[in-house]
C-alpha cells in the first residue's frame, strides 16, 4: 500500500534563500509522524511548502497517490512576479491541498482577530469541504470545553492557549485526512500544555493521521510512530518509536554534550 503522504526530494525556501533541501518524508495511512529539530532550521518552512503556502523549488508532494504540486521547472523570477493562472500556473495551490484533506494548523496563528469563536468555527468546515456539512458541530467543544464559554469572544481577545485550541478545533472540523500540527504547545503554560497534549492524544485516539512538530521529546515519544529528526534543512535521521531516546540524549546528539 502506498503512503498517505509522500514527499520526494523536496527543496524550497524564501527566494533567494534556500531553507531546506532534498527532504524525503513518508506518512503511512493511520500513522503519526513526529518532526523534531532545533528552531530556525526550517521545519515550519517545510510544512508551509507541503500545504502550498509557498511554492516548492523542486521535488514532489503526493497525497494519497495524487500529486499536489504542478511538476516542472521552477519559474524564473520574472514570470513569478506575474500571477496569471492562465499564463503561469502556480506550482502549488493551498486551497487544493486543504480540500484534499491535508489540513495544516499553523504555528501560533492569530487566526481571524475580529471574528468570534463561533464565526470562525462556522466557516471552518465549509471552507475545507467545499461547502459540505461538518460531521459533528459539537466536536470543538468536546475536545476543548473551555471554548464553549468563549463562543462570542473575538479571536483577538482569546489567550494564546485558547487561540491554539480554536485553531486545532477548526482543523478538526475540516474532517482532516492528515492533520499537520506545528508546535501546538508553543509558548504555553505547563497546565495548558497538558490540556493540549490531552487533546492531541484524543485526536490521535480517534485515528486521525498526524504530522506533529514539538520541542518536547517525551510528548512526541508517547504519540508518534516514527520520529523524523530535522536539522540544517534536511531530515538527518528517522527513528522508529522504540529507538527514540530521551530529551537529554537527543539534544546531546544534535548539539554535542554541552551539559
Amino acid at each position: 500500500m502506498s503512503a498517505l503522504l509522500k514527499v520526494e526530494r523536496l527543496s524550497g525556501g524564501y527566494e533567494p534563500v534556500q531553507i531546506f533541501k532534498d527532504v524525503d518524508l513518508e506518512v503511512e495511512h493511520g500513522a503519526c509522524a513526529g518532526l523534531f529539530g532545533p528552531n530556525g532550521h526550517g521545519k515550519t518552512t517545510l510544512l508551509r511548502t507541503i500545504s502550498g503556502l509557498i511554492d516548492p523549488w523542486s521535488g514532489n508532494i503526493l497525497f494519497d497517490g495524487v500529486q499536489l504540486n504542478t511538476p516542472g521547472e521552477r519559474r524564473t523570477r520574472r514570470s513569478r512576479n506575474l500571477n496569471y493562472d492562465i499564463l503561469v500556473r502556480r506550482r502549488m495551490d493551498p486551497k487544493k491541498v486543504a480540500r484534499a484533506g491535508l489540513i495544516h494548523v499553523a504555528q501560533g496563528s492569530p487566526l481571524f482577530p475580529e471574528l468570534t469563536v463561533a464565526e470562525t468555527l462556522s466557516i471552518a468546515p465549509a471552507a475545507a469541504r467545499g461547502g459540505g456539512r461538518p460531521s459533528d458541530p459539537e466536536l470543538p467543544f468536546t475536545l476543548f470545553p473551555q471554548l464553549k464559554e468563549r463562543r462570542q469572544s473575538k479571536a483577538r481577545f482569546l489567550s494564546g492557549g485558547e487561540r491554539q485550541m480554536l485553531a486545532i478545533a477548526c482543523g478538526m472540523l475540516a474532517a482532516p485526512r492528515l492533520l499537520i500540527l506545528d508546535e501546538p504547545t508553543l509558548g504555553l503554560s505547563p497546565k495548558l500544555r497538558l490540556e493540549l497534549a490531552d487533546a492531541v492524544h484524543a485526536i490521535r485516539g480517534a485515528g486521525v493521521p498526524i504530522i506533529l512538530v514539538d520541542q518536547d521529546v517525551g510528548f512526541l515519544r508517547d504519540l508518534v510512530d516514527k520520529l523524523h529528526v530535522f536539522d540544517h534543512g534536511s531530515i538527518s535521521r528517522v527513528l522508529p518509536r522504540a529507538d527514540i531516546p530521551d530529551h537529554e540524549t537527543l539534544m546531546a546528539d544534535l548539539f554535542g554534550k554541552a551539559h
Partner: peptide, 25 residues
C-alpha cells in the same frame, strides 16, 4: 452569511484562510 464571514476572514488573515481551504482568489 458564510460568504460574508469568509470575506472578513480573508481580509483579516489571508494565510489562515488559505490553510482552511477558502478560495482566496
Amino acid at each position: 452569511t458564510p460568504l460574508g464571514r469568509s470575506m472578513r476572514a480573508v481580509a483579516q488573515n489571508r494565510e489562515a484562510a488559505q490553510l482552511m481551504g477558502l478560495d482566496v482568489r
